[in-house]
Design a protein around this nucleic acid. Sequence first.
DNA 1: GTTCCTTTGAAGTAT
DNA 2: ATACTTCAAAGGAAC
Length: 346
Amino acid sequence: MQQQGQPMYSIPPGGFRHPYPALAMNASMSSLVSSRFSPHMVTPPSHSLHQTGIPHPAIVSPAIKQEPSSDNISPSMHAKSPVPSKKEEDKKPHIKKPLNAFMLYMKEMRAKVVAECTLKESAAINQILGRRWHSLSREEQAKYYELARKERQLHSQLYPGWSARDNYGKRKKRKRENKPDSKPEDFSIRSKKQCVQYLPSEKMCDSPASSHGSMLDSPATPSAALASPAAPAPTHSEQAQPLSLTTKPEGRIHHHFSVPGKASGSASSSSSSSSSSSSSSQPSISIPVGTLSSQSSTPILTRPIPFTSLHPSMLSPPSSFHQAALHSHHSLFQSQPLSLVTKPTE
DNA sequence: GTTCCTTTGAAGTAT
DNA sequence: ATACTTCAAAGGAAC
């Protein structure tokens, strides 16, 4: 992974705080273009940084990573060959997915967490960041959602023909034979490699999980609250963390539980083995727990409302943005699965 | 050298 | 429509 090249962002210690100036596409375009997506293609080299100060290499530079040459390939050129030959496919630069809101947040905050916690393992850091993410104010989260939305917009403009499907199968999933045929309730145990343990000295950090790194005992984890009502009292700011309900376009709220069980094997193409072996093959149960008139009007978002699953447009909807949001259909209200740490039951 | 781990979200495929 | 999977970042650990 690291071989993919230099860090995609050189994040200043202060991170990038930055209100998104203009929501209008054209206005935001230039800044974003100069940020993440292939600066050499669309913007003068002098502008390698976003206003946020974050460079935006959406394309892994061919010189750096997997893809060889073919430097001056424009997005449209990528789009032109929907079914590239194998050879072409090899030459094709790897266009990465745009980062989602949480990924953007992670990029900004990782260094900070690392510094605070003196942890380095990303798995551990990510657990902390996941909890912090949930404890963010809705305004702060909205900031990242908005940035992510812009990134997607820009990405789609730069690479009209690109699809996330293009990157499917690029990672080879190692077959995990070590299927912990564990008891269903033994969520904390994964396969051979377990979650990182945290040293006492790192208590200043948001302990992502108690001793064994299970997210189940995280009060911030909705599943935890649901699965174990008598969970230990939360100790951090996430205490007030609401359940992460999911608003669907229909206005329904769903809880998604991931439970160990059958594997559906719906995976894509090449990595068929991954589908059957992947630990993530968990069926889910959708439980409608209520309704929310998310569409009728701007919801009053009090703390107990799961703002994390609400789109920023609902939080502070500028009219221009609203239109764009509407066109984005379900993704704006995409479900937020509660990922219990489960082990594949084979 | 490659994949896993771990997180959330977006978008893909499968049913 | 719903369920499930993959990938995006990151870096140490395991393979």
